[in-house]
Design a protein around this nucleic acid. Structure first.
Lengths: 338, 338
DNA sequence: TTGAAAGCGCTAACAG
DNA sequence: CTGTTAGCGCTTTCAA
C-alpha cells in the first residue's frame, strides 16, 4: 500500500502537508490541496489505521457490546446494532462488535488497549458489573438501558414508565376497567434488566389514578406457557377486557388462544402490545402498539457518544418518549349488557 | 496506560524480552517469564492495539459485513454475527461490524487501511459487486452464501439444494404427491441471492425423480399476502397435501389460514419449514423443519478465515449438510377415500 | 537465553 | 501557508 510519505513525494510537498490535507486541521492553499488530492487518488492511498491510532491515540472505533443471548429481542438488538454502525460511519467511526460473554474483561481489554475510543453497552442490568469499570475510566460510554444508579453515566432508553402509562390511558379511555398484563419470561425479571419493571410501575401507577385494576403475569414465550397463563388470568379476573403484552414471543400465542376461547379482538377484548412495529403489523391482528424505537436508540447513543468524544456532551439520561399507534386490536370495552 | 517499556523496566529486562513473553515467539527462561508476567499484572499492562498493528501489520481484527436490510432473516443474521464474534475471540481476533450500506467502498477502505486482517461477507448476491475486489486483493475473505462464480473464493453455506431434496423425500415418504412451495418474497428472488433458487432446484429435481408434483409460489410475509397465495394454490391444485415454506414471515400466517380453511395439520395437510429451529418450535404447531445452522455457519466461516490467515487453508466451498427434524406438522398423506 | 536498535506510518508541536 | 522533526508503543532483525 502507498504511504503518506509516498503521496507527499508524488505531490512534491511534505508529509505534514498531506496529513493536514487529510485532517483539515490547517488551512491549505487550494492549489496544493488539489495537487495532494490528485496524488492520493492516483496512488490509491488509504491512511494506515494502526499508524494513525498510534500517533493520534485515537482509533476512531466505537465498541458495541451486545448480549450474547440470542433468544430475546433479537430483531431489536440487530436493528440497534445496525443503526449504531451506520450512524457511527456518518461520524467517521467504525464499530467493534463485542459480545456480552467476556463481561467486564472486555471493557478492560478495550479501554486498556486503546482498541476503541468509546463504548456502547446494550442489555444493561440494574446492578451491572461493568458499571464500576466505566465510572473508573475516562473512556466515554453510553448505555442503552437503565441501571439502578445512573450517576456519572449516560443512558439512552425508551421511557418504559411512560409506555406503561400510555397503554393504560388508551385502554381506560376505551372504557376498560380490568386489565391483564402479560409480561416477559420470569427469567427476564430475575436478570434485573429493569425495563419490564419500569413498564409495570408506569402501568400500575396510572391505573391507580384512573381506577383501573391491573393483574400482572410474567409469561415465557410459546403456546403452552401462554395457555396456562391465560387460563389463570380469566379464572382470576373473568371481567378482564384489556390486555397489555410486553413479550414478542407471547403475542401470537395470545391472539390464537383468545380466538380459541371465542373471544374476538377487538370486540370482546382489546390487546395493546409493546413491541417493534414490524411485529405489530405482521401479527394475525394488526396490533395497537407502543413501538420500541430501536433505530432511534442506536442513533441517539452514537450521537451522545460522539458529543462526548468531541468534548461536548454531558452525563445524563435520555428517555425517548413512547408513541402509541392505534391499529385494529383495540376498541371500546364491551358493555355489561352485551 | 502502562507501556511495554515500563513493564520491561519494572521487570528488569529489555523491551524485546517482554514482547517475546507476550508473543511466545522465542523461548524465555521460566524465571524471567514469571517476573515479566508479574510486572504485567502489577502494572495492569495492556498492549496498545495501534502500536501493535503498526509494527506487525496485523490488526487482529476480522471485518464482518452484514446486510443493512433488517427485514429478512434477522435472527439468523444476528446469530451468525454473534457466533462470528465469539469464535473470533477464541482465536484472538476482534470483529468489526460493517453494514452493507457502503458496499464495495467498505471493502476498499478496510483492506486499504489495514483496519482488518480479513473479512467475512454475508448476504452475498449471485453477481455481487464486491467480489472482483476480493479476488483482486490478497486479503483473505470468506463468504457466507454462494455467488454464481465461486472461483478463487471461499464460501460457507447451507446446502440448500440438498435441503430442498430432503423436504421432498420426507413428504414423498409420507405419501404426498402434490406439494406446494411457499417461497420468499418476490424481492428476494429479484435480488438474486441464490439460496431460494437453489432450494427450489433441489426440490424440483428430487420431485421429478419421485414423481411428485411441485407448485412454487413466492410470497411476501403477513396474512394478506399469504391469504391470496394460499387461495391460488388450493384453487390451482386442490389435491395439494404437502407444503414446504421457506419464509419465516409466512409460517404463522400459513398455519392460521390453513386452520381457518378447516385443514388440520398434520391430518389433512403436512407442513415442512426451512427456518431456524427457534421459529419451528415456537410456531402454533411444532414444525417439522430443516434448520438453518446459523451458529455453525458463523463458526465455520471464522475457522476458514483463521486457517487462511495462518497460511493454511484453501479456496473452496463448504456446504453444510441439512438436517431435517421431524416434529408434529407432518404426517401421512390423507388417502383418497377419506 | 537475552539486548540493542531500527523502523512501522502517521500526527502534531515547533519553526519559519 | 508550508516544512522539519520528534515521537506514539510495539515487533523483529541482528548481535551477543
Amino acid at each position: 500500500m502507498a504511504t503518506l510519505a509516498q503521496v507527499a513525494q508524488h505531490a512534491g510537498v511534505s508529509a505534514s502537508t498531506v496529513s493536514y490535507v487529510l485532517s483539515g486541521k490547517r488551512t491549505i492553499s487550494t492549489a496544493t490541496r488539489l495537487r495532494v488530492e490528485q496524488s492520493i487518488r492516483e496512488l490509491g492511498y488509504h491512511p494506515n489505521a494502526g499508524a494513525r491510532a498510534l500517533a493520534s491515540s485515537r482509533s476512531n472505533i466505537i465498541a458495541l457490546m451486545v448480549p450474547l443471548r440470542t433468544d430475546m429481542y433479537v430483531p431489536v438488538m440487530m436493528e440497534i446494532a445496525v443503526a449504531v454502525a451506520t450512524t457511527a460511519r456518518t461520524h467517521g467511526y467504525d464499530v467493534l462488535l463485542l459480545t456480552g460473554e467476556e463481561g467486564p474483561d472486555a471493557v478492560r481489554r478495550v479501554t486498556g488497549s486503546g482498541l476503541a475510543d468509546a463504548m456502547i453497552l446494550m442489555d444493561v442490568e440494574l446492578d451491572d458489573e461493568r458499571l464500576p469499570l466505566l465510572r473508573g475510566t475516562d473512556q466515554p460510554s453510553v448505555l442503552i438501558g437503565l441501571p439502578a444508579d445512573t450517576s456519572g453515566l449516560t443512558c439512552v432508553d425508551l421511557d418504559f414508565e411512560a409506555t406503561g402509562a400510555l397503554c393504560v390511558d388508551h385502554l381506560a379511555m376505551l372504557g376498560h376497567r380490568d386489565i391483564a398484563v402479560i409480561g416477559e419470561a420470569p427469567a427476564v425479571y430475575e436478570r434485573h434488566t429493569g425495563f419490564a419493571e419500569r413498564t409495570l410501575d408506569g402501568l400500575r401507577s396510572r391505573a391507580g389514578k384512573l381506577g383501573v385494576r391491573v393483574l400482572h403475569r410474567p409469561c415465557g414465550g410459546g403456546y403452552d406457557a401462554m395457555s396456562v397463563t391465560l387460563a389463570r388470568i380469566l379464572d382470576e379476573r373473568p371481567g378482564t377486557s384489556g390486555f397489555v403484552v410486553q413479550n414478542e414471543q407471547a403475542v401470537e400465542p395470545l391472539l390464537a388462544l383468545l380466538r380459541r376461547q371465542g373471544l374476538a379482538v377487538p370486540e370482546d377484548v382489546s390487546v395493546v402490545a409493546v413491541c417493534p412495529d414490524q411485529v405489530a403489523v405482521q401479527a394475525s391482528v394488526r396490533l395497537t402498539s407502543v413501538s420500541i424505537p430501536a433505530q432511534e436508540m442506536g442513533r441517539h447513543a452514537v450521537e451522545r457518544l460522539v458529543a462526548k468524544l468531541d468534548g461536548r456532551g454531558t452525563d445524563d439520561v435520555v428517555l425517548i418518549a413512547p408513541e402509541l399507534t392505534v391499529r385494529t386490536s383495540t376498541g371500546p370495552a364491551p358493555t355489561a349488557a352485551s
